[in-house]
Nucleic acid binder design. Structure first.
Lengths: 145, 145
DNA sequence: CTTGGTGCAAAGGTTTTGCACGGGG
DNA sequence: CCCCGTGCAAAACCTTTGCACCAAG
């Protein structure tokens, strides 16, 4: 029999939201575990299929959506490219290579002061911001010389 | 006969890039002229069709893409929603209503210092950033009370 | 048991593209 | 005149969804 409880806050969160921790969901979460990753749904799908060959792409999408609603996973919208996902973890921003599309983490505390500036210049009730830095990754920068 | 030259920097840019200023292209640009707008390709399409009933959606997409390459138009990537476009104009950021999807301009000088911070924390050659503020627009904020 | 989750496949929505023709410069 | 741009329609792409069955709790 498969152990379903793993007494992490992850499972706690799922339980409290009336979500079942299915095999599929657990494997998807596990795939997102290593930091510095920002896979697309399709990338998650092909990785997870190595463990669960019969999982469907629809299930991957449904789970990523549900997990992002619980806050365990974060949806990323970077450029006009395909949606990406990451495990929600310590505060950081992202850098996006305009040449190859690579996405890297940039560790940083959130810039709270820019929200304040925005509030002063608009009638919106600003709650936060999405910020992506654009530029060249080290590799493309070298190739470019 | 239709006047093709209009001796604006717009036409100059087009000429220098070997782009022809066609009737379609001119009407699309004109539609984007009033500030504070961020229409989707489809919205541009339906507006432009009032002037050019036979224009095709493909032409609208092709032109918005070309115009964004010349720098005359800016593509906006806001949340996971449909792509939006605006005429490139004085420096500002955008606020996105998480409830109704509305997009508003927020006048502001660019935050150059955050690029500096990002540079110090990554190996990317950072050239700029995409920044969208999230919150509630005045209307949704009222409805929410 | 009950009810939410799954696999499958089809549908949906947005954006791109191949092609033959037309018009800009 | 040349060849870029256009209209049309199909294709490509990404994401969502309906449905019958399955399995978590």
């Amino acid at each position: 029999m498969i152990t379903i409880m793993d007494n992490t806050e992850t499972t706690e969160k799922t339980k409290s939201c009336d979500f079942r921790m299915t095999r599929q969901r657990r494997v998807i979460l596990a795939e997102l575990d290593s930091p510095g990753q920002h896979p697309t749904a399709d990338e998650v799908y092909s990785r997870v299929r190595k463990v669960l060959p019969n999982i469907s792409l629809g299930t991957v999408y449904r789970n990523l959506e549900i997990l992002s609603q619980t806050g365990m996973v974060k949806k990323l919208h970077i450029g006009s490219e395909q949606r990406r996902y990451e495990k929600n973890q310590k505060r950081h921003y992202h850098a996006h290579c305009v040449m190859c599309g690579r996405v890297s983490d940039i560790p940083s505390d959130p810039f709270g002061d820019i929200d304040k500036t925005a509030r002063e210049n608009s009638r919106f009730d600003i709650t936060g911001h999405e910020l992506v830095f654009e530029g060249l990754c080290p590799k493309c920068n070298d190739d470019n010389q």
